[in-house]
Nucleic acid binder design. Structure first.
Lengths: 127, 127
DNA sequence: CATAGAGCTTCCAGCAACTGGAAGGTCAAG
DNA sequence: CTTGACCTTCCAGTTGCTGGAAGCTCTATG
């Protein structure tokens, strides 16, 4: 299967698939003409990556997860650890954004938003 | 005032302050020896940037906000619009992360995390 | 006055994770 | 045989810094 069909199959842009090959994540075979040729195994990995990236795992996390995916002797603890760490990061990020949102929301509420220059948002930034 | 004192004053690393000059945000005067020389006006702008960045505004937003800050004839509506847009982005991001968190949290909960290979997290990614 | 060390300068490279585009080879259809 | 849609590689750009090298300047000390 060529790259554009693989792209449709796994839901990743062809550019991204080539990039994943560049960084050693999924290396398909090649046809005589030099074209990439994806088999089912490659497609599984690409779909796996698409989902893991969709869950916000970093590419480096994905690399490890992919190797665990392929490791029939993996310990589920290893997978869980990565996921828990990632979950913690997401939770921290949420808290940070919520705090930003609260501040910003107050500021936006307090600004008249008319054609006069007085602006609590600017005042706050300049405080 | 030299750059390292300015850095202490505004809470930004010297590297960042130089970067902001590179991209045309705050350009201090120069002493005869070529050293940057920050006056109160520069410091105000740097503090403004530090706060605006801290609220998550992009550097390009900051550029506009800074020009509004300096514009005595600004319309507060212009400021409010930028802030509202940013607020919307933050809210979208929060929603996205919350959805990720929920999914990931379920997966983590369901994984035994022992030394056996069976792992609902991997199963989900490979589904 | 010489020198050591801190601080300043510029410039270049790299991070994450792609994305866009140029230049050129290949293939299927008409 | 040509057209157009593929494919290939490679290079540059994105965001917002950050680290480091090479080299100049200033200050304090012996």
């Amino acid at each position: 299967m060529n790259i554009s069909d693989a792209a449709i199959e796994c839901g990743l842009p062809a550019k991204t698939i080539r990039y994943y090959e560049d960084i050693g994540l999924v290396s398909p075979g090649r046809l005589a003409n030099g074209y990439r040729d994806y088999d089912e195994d490659d497609l599984h990995k690409l779909r796996f990556l698409q989902r893991a990236r969709g869950l916000g795992f970093s590419v480096e996390d994905c690399r490890v997860l992919l190797s665990l995916y392929e490791d029939r002797n993996r310990a589920s603890a290893d997978v869980k650890k990565i996921a828990k760490t990632h979950l913690g990061e997401i939770e921290r990020k949420i808290a940070e954004l919520q705090s930003l949102r609260d501040t910003l929301s107050d500021l936006v509420q307090s600004c008249h938003g008319d054609d006069r220059p007085n602006c609590p948002i600017i005042n706050d930034l300049a405080r």
